[in-house]
Design a binder for these strands. Sequence first.
DNA 1: TATGAATGAGGATTCATTCAT
DNA 2: TATGAATGAATCCTCATTCAT
Lengths: 216, 216, 216, 216
Amino acid sequence: MAELKNMARLPVLKRGIETKEKIINAAWILFSDKGYFKTNTKDIATKAGVATGSFYAYFNNKKDVGIELIRRFYKDGTEKVLSHTIKKISDMLAENPGPKTVRMTVKFIIESFKEFHAISPMLQRDALVLILMDEEVKNVSREEDGKILSFLIEILQQYKEYLRVDDVEAAATLLFRVSDEVMHRIMIHNDEIEAERLLRELEDMICNYIFVSDLK
Amino acid sequence: MAELKNMARLPVLKRGIETKEKIINAAWILFSDKGYFKTNTKDIATKAGVATGSFYAYFNNKKDVGIELIRRFYKDGTEKVLSHTIKKISDMLAENPGPKTVRMTVKFIIESFKEFHAISPMLQRDALVLILMDEEVKNVSREEDGKILSFLIEILQQYKEYLRVDDVEAAATLLFRVSDEVMHRIMIHNDEIEAERLLRELEDMICNYIFVSDLK
Amino acid sequence: MAELKNMARLPVLKRGIETKEKIINAAWILFSDKGYFKTNTKDIATKAGVATGSFYAYFNNKKDVGIELIRRFYKDGTEKVLSHTIKKISDMLAENPGPKTVRMTVKFIIESFKEFHAISPMLQRDALVLILMDEEVKNVSREEDGKILSFLIEILQQYKEYLRVDDVEAAATLLFRVSDEVMHRIMIHNDEIEAERLLRELEDMICNYIFVSDLK
Amino acid sequence: MAELKNMARLPVLKRGIETKEKIINAAWILFSDKGYFKTNTKDIATKAGVATGSFYAYFNNKKDVGIELIRRFYKDGTEKVLSHTIKKISDMLAENPGPKTVRMTVKFIIESFKEFHAISPMLQRDALVLILMDEEVKNVSREEDGKILSFLIEILQQYKEYLRVDDVEAAATLLFRVSDEVMHRIMIHNDEIEAERLLRELEDMICNYIFVSDLK
DNA sequence: TATGAATGAGGATTCATTCAT
DNA sequence: TATGAATGAATCCTCATTCAT
């Protein structure tokens, strides 16, 4: 039934597309500023310069903009950040193949996670909350996480010969979760420990875990 | 002003203490069952067998019961679970000193995290959300996390000679966060990957990271 | 599930009972004046001199006050009007037994329906609409109609010897519906035909239908 | 002002007429299926394959389609059903004149009402509601009812010599209302009593009321 | 201390109708 | 003529918290 009620207008004219975009941008600004939960649909519509009804013409409800934003967020993260990382790693491997690049690769990955989380910590936080509290959002995130995981697995497999782990999928999952969590602690929870110390250990941990030790 | 508003009664008489306890128990049951956000104060009061007004005689607001419960939660976690772990480790070390206990220790630690998170995943989840959304709760959790961290540091220092990490505090923090996160993925997010695979890798990762490699 | 959510407060203290009564009275006035559909819960609360929330403390929703009012309406109709009619008929039969009272009885019944519908035509109309549009209200009305039907059957059975109909239940039902409908046409639809003519025919029709013809 | 606002296009070109027809058909389907109130203008337009705006080019508002449909409904009822009945009665009278046809005539009339109401109970119900709630619709229905009434009077006058009622107009009105109401109870309210019993009594009542008794 | 009634801001959503293109 | 995007008033209901008794 939830599927059937997907009544949101699919804009065909340029004007409609623009309006939808205006709403998304307004939501982005408001969510980044006040957070998802303190923003209401009327605010979003007003900020977008449209009527409340228009909001509901393009989105079934507030959650749906949230999901849309989370998707874009992930997309940006994967397209701009992770794929960029892959490129960097490939370039590096082309120039300078061999075990010496391993640590650099890990650095790059961590760096890309950092960049990803720096885009909008507020949104990251609220996304985290939504994922915890809403099944639909959880599924969206799971779906998107799957893509990131594939990236990581792909990267790891480029180093097949230097891996010390057998279960690459589980290792990649762990690598993903661990990096993600560390970024959360740094960007969202503002844990007392200095970010640098944590990041240094993170890098060290990953290298020692994933790769055989006699490389360095 | 926050100070002034702390009107909640501090029960001294046995009866008052019992009433407060009844409220906490009711809240615990309800939060574990329906979650913090879907439980309202009236329900709690009703379940506790007191009037709504009485709830506010013992707690300033709903959040405060949440905090109280989170504190107890942590307390249980540290007292019943972690301290029990420490004991197990000490016993093991007494009986069988040396590097061979390292991996067992890590297993114990992971196991204790698992037990801790198994108490009430629903509450864990809502605590997570509250921590993300409320500064006061965040501080409470930070405080309690500090205690757990101390435990871990204490344990690690028992193995001083076998440690490969320099920054023990950061390592312990990482160890804490990583274990916590993995439990969340397993207990709360129900990630698709099998728990066993993830846990096996977690153990492997921690061992390789924390301890020198020529032990096993 | 609808049953389970019967959260409406059951007032225990005098104050609560009074408030509920105030709300019902306000609703009655507003419904009679503007009609059910043009009245909203906020209006009712305001008129009752209470907060919106109080409205929802005593009623799950607007429909529920409507139902409550419909019930009271019926109750008034049956208690004050119909039972009064029964009494009049009994008195008449006691004084002056025999077939001559038949027509008078029918007159009394019609008169009682008229009185019943004269209480608040606006509410009658809205009740009619609600019955048509809402299953729950329909059931309430069916239930209450059953009581009126029993009254009618009871009356008819007092004239057992003069009845020409076999299926008394069906006859009473028809008698009920026909009288009701005629009142609706007169009080609600304001049909063009003069009420007197219609009522005269109604009486004539019922007498000829229900009773043997050689009485008069 | 009401006059001024009658901007609805009066289609003269074939295309316009077709579009209007498409809208009416779509509305018919939707109203019969989900009812008038749960159908919105957008749905109607979509189902008709036109834009929302086009709807308002042909109708001033949603109610107007309702009225149009009610008119057609009545027209179908009178043309296809009632006039067909008149024909059947005329044929019968031609073949077999005399008092024996009286009961058959009543049967035919009741049957025609039944057929009429069977076309679309959902629409009947909503028409009923609209008539109760909207003055304009009430007037339309009154107008159309007048036509049916004329039919009935016409029929009754064919039996002038057997009638026992004096006020034929009032009698016809009563006959109309009574039959209509019984059909509502059967088709819309689904009263508990079996339709057959009610219909049998209805027929009996009408015969005894309208016609002299020594016919059968 | 305890009770339970009262508060009321606050937010999501709908849909008939209008309007710009 | 036709399109489909835009409008925005209107309404229901929740629940943490306060208050009168």
